[in-house]
Amino acid sequence: MARFVLLLVMVSVATFLLLELIPGDPVDGLLPEGATEEMRQQLIQLYGFDQSLVTRYVSWLGDLLHGDLGTSWQTRIPVATTIAERAPVSLELAVLAMALALAVAIPVGIYSAYRPGGIVDRIATFIASATLATPAFVLAIVLVWVFGVQLGWLPIVGWVPFSEDPFQHLRAVILPVISLAGGECVLFIRLLKGDMMATLQQDHVLSARARGLPTWRILVRHALRQSSFSLVTVSGVVIGRLIGGAVIVEMIFSIPGLGSLVVIAINNRDFITVQAIVLLSALIYLVLNSLVDLAYPLLDPRVRRATT
């Protein structure tokens, strides 16, 4: 726990230092054309840009401990409000991407393990390597071009909230979700196939085979159950990564999530927003990682054996 808090403090201090190094005063990023020197000085006073780094950090930390993430210098909207609006968007994308990746990976992974070197395995392996080799930003713009522009099947106009039009919403999330799911799906297939093939070598499975049980039943009943543990734990890490990491996909599809917000905030020198988002992402990562570390030995007998 102490380590946990220490890490968060380190992340926040490092973020502060990093942002401090970015050239261009926040004041210059904020003030509009035509602002007088007097307004400039007032703004510096107001946000304490003239105070030392330590003073600013301590006051930011103090507010944070009182549950106050501060107010955006740019929009004057509380940072917490903006994050509360955007986090669900990033979360939804992450969860859907995850679900899609698993939905494809499980049957493909099982079948590849069932008939390794077979046609499905080879096609899957090929598609998997191809997908893994396509950077998300390349995949995203190619998808937009094919399905949005050439075929006209999916909308190219930005984000429609679910509450407003569920159907349009789903149409709008398809391409971003596929772009995000691509790489993760491949990871899952590899993991699952590896796990399953290892399981097939285990004694009780070999004896089940000797008893004449069909391989696919063994795969589903024994192997999948064991492998699902590692899938679940890896999913935890992957989700954490997707929530904080979908910067480019959010930019390409104009999705109002946390990733696009951070880029905008850095450009506008709205550092108070950047600090909050980086801290939140780190928190999510650390929490999920701790859960995984805790859960892993409990769930997977192989690891229990290996670590004890």
Binding site: L7, L8, V11, A14, T15, L18, L19, I22, G244, G245, V247, I248, G259, V262, V263, I266, V274, I277, V278, S281, A282, Y285, L286
Partner: peptide, 11 residues
């Protein structure tokens, strides 16, 4: 590792 990688790089 706790830094979101791309955000870290951009900053």
């Amino acid at each position: 590792m706790a830094f979101p990688p791309l955000m870290f790089l951009i900053a």
